[in-house]
Structure formats: structure tokens, C-alpha cells
Design a protein around this nucleic acid. Sequence first.
DNA 1: GATTTATCATGACATTAGCTCATGTGCTTG
DNA 2: CAAGCACATGAGCTAATGTCATGATAAATC
Lengths: 304, 304
Amino acid sequence: MIELRHLRTLVALRDAGSLVEAAERVHLTQSALSHQIKDLEERLGTALFMRKTRPVEFTRAGQRLLSLAEQVLPLVRMAERDVARLIGHEPGRLHMAIECHSCFQWLMPTIDSFRDHWPEVEIDIPGGHHFDPLPALAREQLDLVITADPQPLPSVHYEPLFRYQGLLAVARQHRLADRAFVEPEELAEETLITYPVEHARLDVFTQFLDPAGVRPREVRTAELTIMMMQLVASGRGVCALPNWALTEYLERDYVKAVGLGETGMWSTLYAAIRDESREQAWMEDFLRTARETSFAVLEGIKPA
Amino acid sequence: MIELRHLRTLVALRDAGSLVEAAERVHLTQSALSHQIKDLEERLGTALFMRKTRPVEFTRAGQRLLSLAEQVLPLVRMAERDVARLIGHEPGRLHMAIECHSCFQWLMPTIDSFRDHWPEVEIDIPGGHHFDPLPALAREQLDLVITADPQPLPSVHYEPLFRYQGLLAVARQHRLADRAFVEPEELAEETLITYPVEHARLDVFTQFLDPAGVRPREVRTAELTIMMMQLVASGRGVCALPNWALTEYLERDYVKAVGLGETGMWSTLYAAIRDESREQAWMEDFLRTARETSFAVLEGIKPA
DNA sequence: GATTTATCATGACATTAGCTCATGTGCTTG
DNA sequence: CAAGCACATGAGCTAATGTCATGATAAATC
């Protein structure tokens, strides 16, 4: 008997293009998917996709099942939402803080799509708070915080969203422009441009420079990503940003990007929420939507 | 995660009206369904149906999932059929013999619905064969035989369709009319009306009278059920028929029905097919359709 | 063309979901 | 109030469904 599990796998496979990555998306091993699909194929009596092409190519039978999945899975999700709505009639509240300036890029589409499904949830991003958002979360002043450095707090749960790589943006003619990666020491004579937030919240420092005991010659700040890009492009400094925040500038050949350290500087972005709210159907749905939107909108990120 | 299994269970539950019978339909135990649904309810956080009513009554959440099932399951079946069709392009042949006169009642709607889905399968009920159908099945002159007495033959497989109870139809004013059941000996002085087929193929004899060494005073035959009913109603004899073949006459209060023996005479109706054809998608589908149609059209039958 | 790197397949083992069995509880019915 | 029926529940088992370790194969890199 064919099950929804199979359909979800097929969709992941198509979106990912390979078994390995599809496996990450559905949080299973490559082997599990291989077995699962093989089993399904045996029961159906036909192959579902070609393994020797990249991205994988679906047979006609595979395509038919994919189209089934496209029809069916949204229906299932809608039903689940309806059921969830039938249960809890208390309107939800979703006040959030974002510790990650570039996150608006995926957060806005996420919120848009979420609002369609859960109109009764009150969404807000309260501005002008100068308090520390994570304790505010515990105090129930906030309901969700997007952050890259989880700190253990009672009753706060960190839900990983995705992993991304921090890259160093440099001018095209910069001396480091053609390097695959740089070592911390090489930034000692550079001007580093950052968002105007505390030192401890910038992972170029916490993960890269501080461990090596290096301080850049100068640090200056800019509010917006595009301003940073202006400064970098005109050779006024370098700046570290998530890979996906850079893609559009890289495509336009506006700046160059190099890795931070040999292994690259990978971070995980988390949604911090209170333990209790993990149960709420709309919260689950928000996180799912966030992940889906991110993977659709951003390039170069990986499942956590 | 909700799975198709759950949806199939819910549909069975609604159709059956009780967990016990639903369990029979999906070929699981009552316990399994109880666990399965409980588990689902816990994950959803809400009850799906009321257990204390008969037939069971669905909560709003339950109804929502039912409606999901109604949308989704047909789509899944269609996709499965399409996939099956993509594989085997050889048009199928379905020539059948029916060893059960009353069976046309459910067989005709079955065939109608099947033909819609598998237009390329050539369906026929070759008439005028006076050979024994089961060997003809093995010889590939036939592809399916509806029968109530399976005889072991190499490469022939018997797929149970449903169980039914043989009842004795008697005139309203008959001396046995108010009995719950009769013993074989009580038929020694009766005229028994049967279809014009060999003795060994009539289960009133093989299962009821022969074991007790009883022969009715007289045996006469009639071709059609309705003729039998005429004769019975006018006191010219009694006749044994499947419960479901009698319902329409019982509802019109045309005749009365009594059980055969204290435990009742239960038989199982089988579809005999060749081993190889068990694999064919359209054959599976025919059997499924047959079962579904039977349960929809006939009253008082049970899953095999 | 050799070497490295990637993906998928596969067999053995592990885990767990999902089932059956046996039994308990509560409702209905005679 | 006893009997019958339907559902619930806990224990235990099995088979389905995973993981791990490894090998084969194809593409990418040197």
C-alpha cells in the first residue's frame, strides 16, 4: 500500500535533486530512502526515477506519483490545519524579534504565507526594544526569536531552521578576492564592516576572529546590507555575511566572496520559542513554513 | 504524521459503524484499530469520534478528516491505476464463469464500475459452456470463476470475497415460518426447490442435509430466483438461498426466512483465479471493486 | 589516466511502530 | 442483575523501517 510517507519522500527527492540531500530534508539517512523507494518500486513493479543523472530524472510512473503528491499533500496539510483550528479557539500571538538583519529576506515571505493560513494569529515585530530578546521570550513579552547563538535558558527551546555559511565579502579588486578562503590573521589589517549590534552577537568575532586572538584594524557599522555592499564594493572594507544574503550581489558581480577558514564558518539559525508553544499547531506550522520558504528563497543553505 | 492508513481506517469505520466491523473490513483486529486511532487522536490533540453511540458518531475533527479521506483516497487509487497501466501495456482478458445464480446482483454493478476504469480489459461471461469451470480456469480458457466451494488445483488461487449465510425461505403461513432455525430432519417431509445444477454444488445438501443423512421428500428446480420465490410463497416448497438474495423478498413480506441449524449455515464466496494473475494490477482492482460493490449492494454479508 | 569525490546500492544489524492476544471496563438489554 | 457487546488497555511479539558500514560506479580534478 502506498503511503503519504512515500509521497513526501518523492517530493523531497524532486526538490533536492539527489537522494542524499532529500534524505537530509526528511531527516532520514540516504540508505533509508534508498530502501524505502526500492521497496515501493518493487511493489509497484516499476522504477520511479533514474539514479544516474543529476539531478535525478523521474520515469513516467514517478512523474505520475509526483503529481499525485502535489494534489494530495496540500489537501492533507489543509485538513491538518483545519483540525488544529477546531481544537484551540484561543487566538494565538506571535510577537517576534530577529537577531539577524538579513533574515527579512526569507522572513517576509514566510509571514505572508503564514498569515494566509492563520489569520487569527496576531503577528508583530515590536520595534525599538533595547532589552535582550531571549529573556524577553521567557518573560512572555515575545513569542519567538530568530537567533544564531542559542543560550540555555529554562523553558526556552531552540528549533533549528537551517545551516548557512558565513562568507567574507570583498571588493572585486581586493587582494583576497581570488582566494578560496582566508585565515583570521589576514584580516588584521582590514576594516571590518558589521551591523550595529554588540560584539558578542557577531559570529565573525565569536567564531572566527576571537578564537585566533585577532582584531581587525578598524570596525565600522552599517544598518543595511545594501549599504555594506556599497562600502565593500568601493574598497572601504570587508564584511562577513551569510552566503544567501550575498547571492544577489555575487550574481551581479558586485563583490567577491571568500570562505572564512579552511572548513568554512558554518552557523545554524534557530527559532527560539517557549517549550509550551512547541505544541501549538500554528507554531509548528510557522516553523514548517519558515523552513520551506527559506529553502525556496535562499540558495546555499542546508537542513540543520 | 497522518498517513493514508488512518484515512482508510476512518472510512471503514464510518461505513461499518463500529470498530469491530471496521476492523474486519481492513483485516485487522479491533484492538489494532483502537490503538491506531487513539494514537492519531493523541497526536492531533482531539477526539475523532464518539464510541458510545451506535453507529459511531464523528466529531467535527473526525468529519474533517473523513472529508479529506473522500478527496484523497480516490486520487490515490486513480494514480495507482495509472501507474499500473503505464507498466503493463498488454490488454488484459477477463473471461469469467459464475457458479452462483444470484451473484449477478452484485456482479453486474461490479463489472460496470470496473469497465470504466479498465476499458482495455476484455470482459466476457462465455455462455453455454457445459464443462467444469475450475479446470477450464487452469487451462486458461477462463480467467476467473465465482464459486463457493474451492477445490485444490495446481496454480489456482482462491481469493475470498465475503461470507454469507444460507437461509431457508418458507411461505409466510408455513409451519416453520416463526422458527429461528430448523434442523435437517425437519426438511425430510418438505419439497426443496433448487437451481438446476448438480447436487454436489448445492450447499444445502453438502453442508446441511447430507451430513445428517436426510433427503427431502421431493426436489424440484427453478431457473430464476423470482420463480423460486413464487413457488415458495404459494406453499409449493421451500428453498435455501443466500441471505442477501432474499432481502428484497423479506422486506416486501413475501416469504419468511429461517436459519439452517443452530449456528446457521455460513459459506464463503471465492473468486478463483490463476496464481499468475494475482499480480496483475487490474485483477487486484477487480477483486477490490467486487468486494466494495458487494458490501455496498448486499445486506447481511461479512468480510471473509 | 590516475586520484579524488560524489552518489547510490546493499547486507547485516537495530529500533520501533504497529500489530495480536488476553483481559478489563462500562453500556445496553432481556 | 446477569449476559452480551463494544471499546480500552497493557504486555509482548513481529515485521517493517530505519541506521551503519561498506562497496560499486560515475563524474570531477589533477
